[in-house]
Write a protein that binds this DNA or RNA. Structure first.
Ligand SMILES: [Mn+2]
Ligand SMILES: [Mn+2]
Ligand SMILES: [Mn+2]
Ligand SMILES: [Mn+2]
Lengths: 220, 220
DNA sequence: TGTAAAATTTAGTTATGCCTAAATATTTTT
DNA sequence: AAAAATATTTAGGCATAACTAAATTTTACA
């Protein structure tokens, strides 16, 4: 059995790799909140297990075996988030931390039971896709809210799940995945977005908007 | 935060202490499946944390602080077993292993949510009492099945939870907590018990009977 | 193209929690 | 009460996974 630490490394490499190909030691260290020297150590272990490809000073990428494990952990995480949300009524800003710990210890049987209970869902409470049993990730085609223009209407597709204060903030405007809103005004010089959510006006700063991804855009 | 290993030591000391006061290094080692030398090491750590009382060569007992942690872990374990059983439909012979891992990882919030979902239960699927939030253990007054006589009728109160093959065996006779049965015959010379469970006859060996505890005994 | 800055790796340390083998204390037996 | 058997502790190691400080490699830029 792989250690929790190793699983978290693989999961993190997967996520970082999505955005930019090879993953450097420094970026991974930053992401995992450890020192670069520690990352070098774990990288060697993962390489010896053939879970990553690695050349000194040149970053890492997952092998197929490593990717399969990463996706399994991500599947656990997202199923758990949705399960805790739906079955135990946990708030959407609380499920991430709980899932972060549980993801490494649940059995395949428990995974399957949650999946069945939830009706084989394809996304978690923050809109992130849940990989299926075979590691196939449902396609999502959302764009960053920051690229929206005045007058456009759209649906929240996905939000960053790891900052619970941000999630509470979004919750206060009812900005959950599936919620439609319309851009009233984008303030100039990289300014905030004024939006309309179900008749209520809200002002969303750039920094917040960066963590929101949207879908189904219409000009109005 | 206490390590998982330390939590398991405290839980084990609590359980062994229930039966026989002071807990010796060897008994604890046997129970935890580690070597006595490892136990000595952990004992020193737990003593330095003031969670146990200890004198070299003379065994350990829990302090109040240690007992509180032990009961908290046991509460997690038993709530989890019942939750997995009721909410996810896991078989009663599967919940122990799952709970053994989850017990160290769940938050107080999750504990409370499971407790509420289950309606503040007082016993787990194997009949063991669930300590309440304040560490108060519901009183149970069951006696070992091995002390039953011919013709006595009783109700299953509690069974040993950690041997899943044994649990499957008991399940095949419908011997769950709450099930009433009647002793038809106790074979002489420490022989097996022939019992009647809801009209069906079953033969239960001594070794199995040792792990069954009963209640509400009537002579018939 | 050489040097300075930045990133990464190596070397050496720490803490946890397990192990085996040897030493020591306790308990039982004679 | 001493010797033998049993239980426990100490001593020394190993694996994991972090850290700091120093050395090395890459990259950026003058
Ligand atoms: Mn998450
Ligand atoms: Mn994790
Ligand atoms: Mn159990
Ligand atoms: Mn445990």
């Amino acid at each position: 059995m792989l250690s929790q630490a190793a699983e978290d490394y693989l999961k993190s490499i997967y996520k970082l790799q999505e955005k930019g190909g090879k993953v450097s030691t420094g970026v991974l260290a930053e992401f995992l909140n450890v020192k670069p020297a520690s990352v070098t150590g774990m990288i060697k272990k993962l390489k010896s297990m053939k879970l990553i490809k690695y050349e000194r000073y040149h970053g890492v990428t997952l092998t197929n075996a490593g990717k399969a494990i990463a996706l399994e952990v991500i599947r656990h995480h997202r199923l758990l988030e949705l399960y805790l949300f739906k079955a135990l009524g946990m708030p959407w800003d609380g499920v991430h931390d709980e899932a972060e710990k549980l993801e490494h210890v649940i059995s395949e049987d428990m995974e399957e039971r949650m999946d069945a209970y939830l009706g084989y869902p394809t996304s978690d409470p923050h809109g992130s896709p849940i990989p299926d049993k075979n590691g196939v990730v449902p396609k999502t085609a959302s764009i960053p809210m920051t690229s929206l223009q005045d007058g456009q209407s759209c649906v929240v597709a996905e939000v960053n799940d790891s900052d619970s204060a941000l999630l509470r903030h979004l919750g206060s405007f009812n900005l959950y995945p599936g919620t439609r809103f319309r851009v009233i005004e984008v303030a100039p010089f990289e300014g905030p977005f004024t939006i309309d959510v179900a008749g209520q006006q809200a002002v969303i700063g750039r920094e917040v908007a960066k963590h929101i991804f949207v879908d189904d855009i219409h000009d109005t």
